[in-house]
Design a protein around this nucleic acid. Sequence first.
DNA 1: ATCCCGAGGG
DNA 2: CCCTCTGGAT
Length: 220
Amino acid sequence: MTKKQRYEHVLNFFQEHIPDAETELIYDNPFQLLVAVILSAQCTDKRVNLTTPALFRKYPTPQKMAAADFDDLFPLIRSISYPNNKTKHLIGMANMLLEKFNGQVPMTVDELVQLPGVGRKTANVITSVIDEQPNMAVDTHVFRVSKRIGLVSAGASTPLAVEKELIRHIPEHMVHRAHHWLILHGRYVCVARNPKCHECPLTQWCKYYETFVAPYAGQD
DNA sequence: ATCCCGAGGG
DNA sequence: CCCTCTGGAT
């Protein structure tokens, strides 16, 4: 099967079977989304949404957050993973917004990744969600699923390499939805350990299934 | 026990 | 490339 056919089958399947409503981060401006995405590393969106209302109430703007005291901000995000790092990142990020970006959230990946706590994945989320740029944020799910089902070559060993391959093959207007579908599929079916291949309708096009599951079918 | 839509530093 | 950070849900 050609790579082109593989993409057609997979994207078509996602379009028909995966709903695109799910728990998502709550925000009402770019600054709030940036904060929420920084907080979301290794943490569920649900828990982030539980902490952000109080955080945004106390630090509604980059100006307020830049002036925040570590010991005042920390308790507000104490229940999230890596509260120490994230407190430093938020205050540092807000300061750089003021110093380098005129108090505005920049809207290019190259500028965003300069901010403390903002890596390529976060920058791609911000630019694709806020500005509808056709960027693909490669998190752990997208990385794993893309490789398993053969959307990218097995040799793509970094998130950046996977990102570039996906972008090359997915039509621009589908990038955002494809991102969401890959995440949902990875979260509920194509999970990291013991993927639920028995309930996956993609097995007939899946490299992982072909190599690691099908040859052992019937054995136990 | 193992996993969550990672980033920074060595 | 590796390691560390680090809480909550299941």
